[in-house]
């Protein structure tokens, strides 16, 4: 990578497109967690609401990390539009299950970008994404542990289960 474009931009253009899609995915995740936080907040599920407000913030931070990374490397970060946010849920457990599904989808998406960066010899992006890979493994673990609590406490009142859940 030592030609004209390389002098302006230190990451691969196709990888940049994927990173821009990832920004949109993180912002969508943020909006989705905000909807979950609201559902919990309205039902006085104190730990869960704190958990999802925090998640919503963290997802925005992830988006911002990628956003500034693209621009810092000479690319063009795109502010995404977020549409079709679901605000309608059937249960607290279903919310956490949806959260886990969302996290798994994010992990898979990060893997794809990682592979593309590797293929394009885009080492800068590859190293940058390593943090996201460890982060995703922690996130998935958090959600799985919470769903385990639901299994253990099956049949207990919702508020009692909520009291056993982590706030972040």
């Amino acid at each position: 990578m030592n030609t004209i474009v390389r002098k302006q931009m230190s990451i691969n253009t196709d990888v940049m497109d994927m990173l821009n899609n990832q920004i949109a995915m993180e912002m969508k995740a943020s909006a989705s967690y905000l909807a979950m936080a609201s559902w919990c907040d309205q039902r006085e599920l104190l730990n869960s609401k704190a958990f999802f407000y925090k998640q919503a913030e963290e997802e925005r931070e992830h988006a911002m990390k990628i956003f500034t990374f693209i621009n810092d490397n000479g690319g063009a970060a795109i502010s995404p539009s977020v549409t079709n946010v679901n605000n309608d849920f059937e249960s607290l457990r279903a919310i956490y299950e949806t959260g886990l599904e969302q996290e798994i989808a994010v992990t898979e998406s990060i893997f794809k970008i990682f592979k593309a960066a590797r293929k394009a010899d885009d080492f800068i992006t590859e190293v940058f994404l390593q943090w996201f890979i460890s982060e995703q493994s922690e996130e998935e673990d958090t959600f799985r542990s919470i769903i385990d609590v639901f299994d253990l406490m099956e049949g207990m009142p919702l508020k009692m289960i909520d009291e056993r859940l982590p706030k972040e």
Binding site: M1, N2, T3, I4, V5, R6, N12, D121
Partner: peptide, 9 residues
Amino acid sequence: AFFQEAVLA
């Protein structure tokens, strides 16, 4: 093609 140069070089 213009942006491809960056990868091929």
